[in-house]
Deep mutational scan, measured.
Amino acid sequence: TFELKGKVGKVVKIAEDHYLVESEGDKWIAYSDEKLSLGDRVMVVDVDGLKLKVKRIP
């Protein structure tokens, strides 16, 4: 299986209740415990079905 946990991506869209993150050339629906901005670099900390939980990284 394709393992996304630990992968790095970038926030490419902000929606009302989720983010769109591009990682490894694909776009994924993501959510975070912190507020993210367009262009933020993020790391995948968990995968919930087809949704990614991400956190901001420097």
Score class of each variant (00 low, 15 high):
1 T>E: 15
39 G>W: 14
47 V>D: 02
9 G>T: 04
17 D>W: 11
12 V>D: 05
35 K>P: 07
24 E>R: 01
26 D>V: 12
35 K>Y: 07
52 L>E: 01
23 S>H: 07
16 E>W: 12
29 I>K: 11
53 K>Q: 11
27 K>S: 10
49 G>M: 11
40 D>R: 02
31 Y>W: 13
21 V>T: 03
48 D>Q: 12
4 L>P: 15
7 K>R: 13
57 I>K: 03
9 G>H: 02
56 R>G: 05
41 R>M: 11
18 H>R: 12
51 K>N: 09
45 V>K: 03
47 V>T: 04
53 K>F: 14
35 K>F: 07
46 D>A: 04
21 V>C: 06
40 D>Q: 13
40 D>P: 00
43 M>A: 05
5 K>T: 14
18 H>S: 10
10 K>I: 07
44 V>F: 15
5 K>V: 15
19 Y>Q: 02
40 D>E: 11
19 Y>R: 00
11 V>Q: 00
11 V>N: 00
21 V>F: 15
51 K>P: 02
18 H>P: 00
58 P>H: 11
28 W>A: 02
29 I>F: 12
20 L>H: 12
50 L>T: 07
24 E>Q: 04
10 K>G: 06
7 K>A: 14
58 P>M: 11
56 R>M: 07
58 P>R: 07
26 D>Y: 14
17 D>S: 11
19 Y>A: 07
18 H>D: 11
10 K>P: 03
42 V>N: 00
32 S>H: 02
41 R>V: 09
11 V>C: 11
16 E>L: 11
55 K>G: 05
34 E>M: 07
16 E>T: 11
41 R>T: 09
55 K>S: 13
33 D>Q: 12
36 L>H: 03
37 S>K: 06
13 K>R: 13
4 L>E: 15
33 D>V: 12
34 E>G: 08
46 D>E: 06
22 E>C: 09
31 Y>C: 10
25 G>K: 04
23 S>W: 01
11 V>Y: 00
54 V>Y: 01
51 K>A: 14
7 K>C: 13
14 I>Q: 06
24 E>G: 03
34 E>V: 07
44 V>L: 02
34 E>A: 07
39 G>I: 03
26 D>K: 11
22 E>H: 10
35 K>Q: 08
12 V>C: 10
24 E>D: 06
47 V>H: 04
42 V>E: 00
32 S>T: 05
55 K>T: 14
50 L>W: 14
37 S>H: 06
46 D>P: 01
12 V>F: 10
51 K>S: 13
47 V>P: 03
43 M>I: 14
39 G>Q: 11
9 G>E: 00
41 R>K: 06
19 Y>K: 00
17 D>M: 12
57 I>F: 12
28 W>M: 05
39 G>P: 01
23 S>C: 15
10 K>F: 10
15 A>D: 09
35 K>M: 06
56 R>F: 09
42 V>S: 01
3 E>C: 11
53 K>H: 09
51 K>T: 14
12 V>K: 06
24 E>C: 10
50 L>H: 08
35 K>D: 05
2 F>A: 15
17 D>L: 12
52 L>H: 01
11 V>S: 00
26 D>W: 15
32 S>L: 02
6 G>E: 02
10 K>C: 11
21 V>A: 05
49 G>A: 07
6 G>D: 05
37 S>P: 02
12 V>T: 09
6 G>V: 01
53 K>D: 04
27 K>H: 07
42 V>M: 01
14 I>F: 11
37 S>I: 10
23 S>P: 01
7 K>H: 05
57 I>C: 14
30 A>R: 00
45 V>E: 14
3 E>D: 03
12 V>Y: 09
54 V>P: 00
20 L>N: 05
32 S>P: 01
43 M>T: 10
54 V>R: 00
15 A>Y: 07
14 I>T: 08
9 G>D: 00
4 L>S: 14
33 D>T: 12
17 D>K: 10
15 A>N: 08
54 V>M: 03
38 L>A: 10
22 E>G: 04
43 M>E: 15
10 K>D: 06
55 K>V: 13
48 D>E: 09
41 R>W: 06
